[in-house]
C-alpha cells in the first residue's frame, strides 16, 4: 500500500442514541481511488463529513495530509479544506448563479484574480467536464447529470489534492453514468488526486476503485486492495458485493411468527 493520505483511528461517533461509528480504523492511500461501501444508513456520508471537518468525532482521531482534524482552529480548517473538493449527491449548485459563476465562485472568494484569468480557469474546468457550451445556463435549466458535472467542475476548480464523491452514480442515465465514471478515473489517474468514492453502485465503483473499504454496523468489515478484499470476502460481504438475495442477510425484517400475524392458528 502506498502512503496513507487520510488516517482514521478508533473513530467513534453517535447521533443521539444511535451509534454510527463504533471504533473505526481506516487508511486512505494517497493518489488512488478508494471506494467506501456499505448498506444504506451505515454512515458513509457521515464519514466524508468527518474527513471534511464538518463533524467532530466523539473520540478517536481523523488526520488528513498529516494534520489532525480535532482541535483545528477555523482558519486552519479552512486552509485544509482548500485542498479538498467535494461532490455532493445533489450537486448543491448555488441556484441564484449561472453555471459559469457557480464554477467561478470558489476562485472569486479566495483569490483576487483579474477577470480574464478567472474566465480561463473556469472555462478550462468546464471543458474537462464537457460543459463549456453550457456556461451561461442557470442550474434550473440543467439535467441532473449536467448539474453533477458542473458541481464536479466547481469541486476541482481550486485543484484539490483530495476529492470526495458522495453517491456520484445515483440517478443517472447510462451514458451520463459512463461519463462520470470516466471523469472520476481520469481525474485520479492523470492528476494524481486522492479520491474517496462513497457509493453502493457496486459494479461502477469496483470498475474504477483501487482500494475498497466496507462499512457495516459502525465497523470496518473489510479493507484493502479490491482484488484482495474480493478474494477473502466473508459470506455476508459476498452477498453484499454480488447483490444476491440469497445469503446470511434475510429479505424479511425480524417479525413474530407468520401464523400469529395472519391468524392462522389451527381450528380445533
Amino acid at each position: 500500500m502506498t502512503q496513507a493520505y487520510i488516517e482514521i483511528k478508533d473513530l467513534t461517533f453517535a447521533r443521539g442514541q444511535r451509534q454510527i461509528f463504533d471504533g473505526i480504523n481506516l487508511e486512505i492511500p494517497q493518489g488512488a481511488i478508494t471506494a467506501v461501501m456499505g448498506p444504506s444508513g451505515c454512515g458513509k456520508t457521515t464519514l466524508l463529513r468527518h474527513i471534511g471537518g464538518q463533524l467532530q468525532a466523539d473520540s478517536g482521531s481523523v488526520s488528513v495530509a498529516g494534520v489532525q482534524m480535532n482541535g483545528l482552529s477555523r482558519s486552519e480548517l479552512f486552509a485544509l479544506r482548500k485542498q479538498m473538493g467535494m461532490l455532493f449527491q445533489s450537486g448543491a449548485l448555488l441556484t441564484d448563479l449561472n453555471v459559469f459563476e457557480n464554477v467561478a465562485f470558489p476562485v472569486r472568494e479566495h483569490y483576487q484574480f483579474d477577470e480574464s484569468m478567472v474566465r480561463d480557469i473556469v472555462l478550462m474546468k468546464l471543458e474537462i467536464v464537457g460543459l463549456r457550451g453550457a456556461a451561461q445556463l442557470m442550474p434550473s435549466e440543467l439535467s441532473g447529470g449536467m448539474a453533477r458535472r458542473v458541481a464536479l467542475a466547481r469541486a476541482i476548480v481550486l485543484d484539490p489534492a483530495l476529492m470526495m464523491y458522495d453517491e456520484p452514480f445515483t440517478g443517472l442515465d447510462p451514458i451520463t453514468l459512463g461519463n462520470i465514471v470516466t471523469l472520476i478515473r481520469s481525474l485520479s489517474k492523470s492528476l494524481g488526486i486522492t479520491s474517496i468514492l462513497v457509493s453502493h453502485d457496486i459494479n461502477e465503483s469496483l470498475s474504477i476503485a483501487d482500494y475498497l473499504c466496507v462499512l457495516a454496523e459502525g465497523k470496518v468489515v473489510a479493507q484493502g486492495p479490491v482484488e484482495v478484499v474480493k478474494a477473502t470476502a466473508s459470506p455476508w460481504l459476498k452477498q453484499f458485493l454480488t447483490g444476491s438475495t440469497e445469503g446470511p442477510v434475510d429479505f424479511h425484517y425480524p417479525a413474530t411468527s407468520r401464523a400469529n400475524d395472519f391468524h392462522l392458528e389451527a381450528k380445533s
Binding site: 464538518q54 472568494e109 479566495h110
Partner: peptide, 21 residues
C-alpha cells in the same frame, strides 16, 4: 432551502464561511 439542498454545506466545504458570505 439553501440548507436543505446542501448549498450551505457545499459553501462550507469550499472553505468559505456561509454565515459571513
Amino acid at each position: 432551502l439553501m440548507k436543505a439542498t446542501e448549498q450551505l454545506a457545499s459553501i462550507e466545504m469550499m472553505a468559505i464561511d456561509p454565515i459571513r458570505r
